[in-house]
C-alpha cells in the first residue's frame, strides 16, 4: 500500500507533503505510485476538499460533538481519502492506494471475459482492503493523533507563522511523521 499524506491550510495551500509505503506485513515503507498516479494525487487530494467541507459543515453524524477525525470520506477509483481537521481548520489528508491484490484486481485472467469480473470478487473476498473496517480506521486514527501532536508542537514555534500559510520545512517534523507512519500504517 502506498500513502500520500498532505497537510492543507484553510485556503487549500499544501503545507506539507509526505509519501510513504506501508511498513506492515513486510512492506519496506517506500511509496509505489506509478508516475501517472503521482501526477494525479494532488488533483485527487484537492478535489476531496469538497467532501471535507461538506462533512465538516454538514449535519453532525455523532450527536453533539464535532470529531476531528472524519474517517474515510472520499474515493477516486482506487484511492481512498481519510481526513483529520485541526481546530485551526487545517486539513490533514491521507490518500491510501492499496496494492492491486488488495483490491482483487489481479486475480487471474479467468474473469477477463465476464463483465462481472472484478466487482463480484471485490465484494465477497476476505483480505481485501476495506477503508471502513475498524482496524483500518483505528490505525489511521492513531497515525493522525500522532501527527496532530507533532503538528501542534511545530506550530507553537514562535518563528513559524502558520497563519500565513508557511510551509513546514522542519526535518524533525518530517522524521516524526515518518516514524508515526512506520508505527501505525
Amino acid at each position: 500500500m502506498s500513502y500520500n499524506f498532505t497537510i492543507l491550510s484553510p485556503l487549500d495551500v499544501p503545507l506539507f507533503t509526505h509519501e510513504f509505503g506501508t511498513s506492515r506485513s513486510g512492506g519496506d515503507g517506500i511509496a509505489r505510485f506509478t508516475s501517472t498516479e503521482r501526477a494525479q494525487n494532488p488533483f485527487i487530494l484537492h478535489s476531496a476538499l469538497d467532501i471535507v467541507e461538506e462533512v465538516q459543515w454538514g449535519p453532525s453524524s455523532t450527536s453533539g460533538s464535532a470529531p476531528m477525525y472524519l474517517k474515510h470520506i472520499d474515493k477516486y477509483q482506487n484511492n481512498f481519502i481519510s481526513c483529520w481537521i485541526t481546530g485551526g481548520n487545517v486539513r490533514f489528508l491521507l490518500l491510501t492506494r492499496p496494492r492491486d491484490e488488495a483490491l482483487g484486481l489481479t486475480q487471474g485472467g479467468g474473469q477477463r471475459g465476464s463483465l462481472a469480473g472484478g466487482r463480484a470478487g471485490l465484494g465477497g473476498g476476505s483480505g481485501l482492503y476495506n477503508p471502513t473496517s475498524p482496524a483500518t480506521e483505528e490505525a489511521v486514527k492513531n497515525f493522525f493523533v500522532d501527527v496532530y501532536e507533532n503538528w501542534v508542537k511545530t506550530i507553537m514555534n514562535p518563528f513559524f507563522a502558520v497563519g500565513n500559510g508557511e510551509v513546514v520545512k522542519s526535518p524533525v517534523f518530517r522524521a516524526r511523521v515518518a516514524a508515526a507512519a512506520k508505527k501505525y500504517l
Partner: peptide, 8 residues
C-alpha cells in the same frame, strides 16, 4: 470489458 477501473 472487465470492471477494473483503469487509472488514466
Amino acid at each position: 470489458q472487465d470492471a477494473t477501473p483503469r487509472p488514466p
